[in-house]
Design a protein around this nucleic acid. Structure first.
Lengths: 348, 348
DNA sequence: TCAATTTGCGTGCTCGTTAACACACTTCTA
DNA sequence: TAGAAGTGTGTTAACGAGCACGCAAATTGA
């Protein structure tokens, strides 16, 4: 089926069919209806190759992420997924513009959004870790599609999200903790930085699981890596003598784990944390981390790019909300998740 | 960069550049080298839209799978993944032809391959559960790319694979069994049908893990669902009084689990099996199955289609071997894997 | 040596869609 | 009522690559 065949069937020219297809007016209502009926009847869809050849323009996706080299590489994994998708789609005129911001500094995200205004983009991928800034960025880029990644936020109609439920993830971590270290005692919940949404929700899920179990207590500790966090950790073992395990609510678990190992408490402490960044992989291989929960950061980035591409280039629908499965990583299945988390790669 | 710009730079016509690009001869060696140098220097790649518009032909992927409605739906999950990818790619002229065969009947797979010869295909997705037949099918379809799914086999150069390591999966199942049911005793390993490759490797991995643990024994039982398998299961509990858990090496675990529940042994038996087919989801929700290992069948199918599409339409490279991660599913993360296993869907 | 073939290269049409343009006809507006 | 503005429709030139064809010039063969 081509536009020309549709035109013939409707007794009009291709120009008219085109005007109907793109709602460009200048068509009488009666002709319009006739053409629409035939399009529907023949289940016509414009040829994507011809369309994009004619349009002949890049599809630019703007990406706003926290500083990639901070926070032990979690954001870098997301970035890798985005880059990989972009590489696969480079033949289909998809381009990526990445803008980094400092999530600790208010306004930094907004400022990055302003930089983006200079090279206008057709769609947006946004980690709304600073919700207020994110709202402003969205306001500054009206009418383009946006996908939230890592965290969600109240969504305008044109946005959707790719996220994991952090409460469920924490709850599952509780279950794993209980499996790996079933003796009664205390589990420490280690928070870092000020509580980000994901972090606090994970802590909440974890505690809720523990609260439902007989004889399991939890104790929250705040570890500020700019401060004397080592001391706090050591004190914890002094003040609380029945520590059975430590749950770190983010990807910095490898730092906590190696310190616990250093001060000799590793043998009696089960350690659980998040995400398959290289440092965590290494510490799990070393036997210092028992279990990791993964939120598939690379897949999140990969999936976000593909969704925007399908909407922008192929005119397909956006998923409203994509829920990322909660992966359990033990030493026994670590090797099956090597390098890219689960995305087939192309060689460059 | 277009062919015309390349031509201008090389001081030749587009026809000559085209002949160089497609090795169609009729170009003097010296001109050829000059053009190639410029192509490389400019990093020129032909526009995928223009190319496919001109070629204007469907890319047909032939799919050979065991009977979809047998075996409790595992193959159906693979099928769903394939269908989903095909739906997303239908705008890019990818078409799927599915041929089913009976894996229990020798020659059935080959016969399906012969049916396929009538509507020639451009690429192949093949579950080589009958390796001899698979070899013949490949021989009958020379020169086209092929991806093995579910299981691999010795590969000709033009084939690649999307599979999970079944030994590692069984080994991990052993670990989970030991976590969920740590008391010394016997674990039953339930095989069904005659040992397929994946099944026997999973059993081997599981037993190997157990052999490395103190005080854990394993006992293999063969359950033939056409025979009196219920009786065999009941006898097992009579002859072996310390059964701690049952490991079913495939997706039929829900049948075994509900029978164990029926005969009253569920409370003291940990049950582990494979794959998120609907029946297994339900029995896990009912609390009858403790743990499932998933090999992401939907992703396998999805990924196979996408890889062939990238090779066939976009001229990108095929992955040689894609290793599927080994997923651990517990009741606590079951809901995060709902419906499609991890593939974003488009509405039809 | 000259006809027949081969080699090396350029030309031009085509794929389906888009969007600018042309043009006749109608409806306003002063 | 003339001119302007608006409406409904058809025509056509790209977009970039592929490929058939044409045509010299070079090479072959008897």
């Amino acid at each position: 089926m081509t536009i020309e065949e549709i035109a013939k069937l409707a007794g009009v020219s291709t120009g008219t069919v085109d005007r109907v297809l793109h709602n460009r007016g200048r068509v009488s209502p009666v002709t319009r209806e006739r053409v629409l009926a035939i399009i529907k009847e023949q289940n016509f869809k414009p040829n994507a190759f011809a369309r994009n050849l004619k349009l002949n323009k890049e599809f630019r996706i703007g990406v706003l992420l926290p500083l990639l080299h901070s926070e032990y590489g979690y954001w870098n994994l997301i970035y890798q997924g985005i880059i990989n998708a972009a590489k696969e789609l480079s033949d289909l005129s998809v381009k990526i513009d990445v803008y980094e911001f400092d999530r600790q500094k208010g306004g930094s995200c907004f400022e990055a959004g302003r930089r983006m205004l200079k090279n206008p983009v057709d769609a947006l991928i946004l980690a709304p870790v600073c919700p207020d800034d994110a709202k402003l960025v969205l306001a500054a880029h009206p009418d383009i599609d946006c996908i939230f990644i890592d965290t969600s936020m109240p969504q305008p109609h044109r946005a959707s999200s790719v996220t994991q439920n952090p409460y469920k993830a924490g709850y599952l971590a509780g279950r794993m903790m209980n499996l790996l270290s079933p003796n009664p005692g205390t589990y420490a919940v280690a928070l870092t930085h000020r509580a980000a949404y994901n972090a606090s929700e994970r802590a909440r899920g974890f505690k809720e699981f523990c609260a439902r179990q007989e004889g399991m207590r939890t104790k929250t500790v705040e570890l500020n890596f700019e401060g004397n966090w080592g001391k706090i950790l050591e004190d914890l073992y002094v003040t609380t003598t029945d520590i059975q395990g430590v749950f770190v609510v983010n990807d910095s678990v490898h730092r906590v784990a190696s310190h616990i190992n250093l001060i000799g408490h590793r043998p009696k402490t089960t350690i659980i944390g998040f995400d398959l960044i290289v440092q965590n992989r290494k510490e799990m291989e070393n036997g210092i981390i028992d279990c990791l929960i993964s939120q598939r950061p690379e897949f999140q980035g990969y999936s976000a790019v593909y969704q925007l591409y399908r909407k922008g280039i192929l005119n397909q629908q956006l998923e409203k909300e994509t829920e990322i499965p909660i992966d359990i990583i033990l030493p026994e299945n670590l090797s099956s998740t090597e390098s890219m988390d689960y995305i087939p790669r192309i060689r460059s």
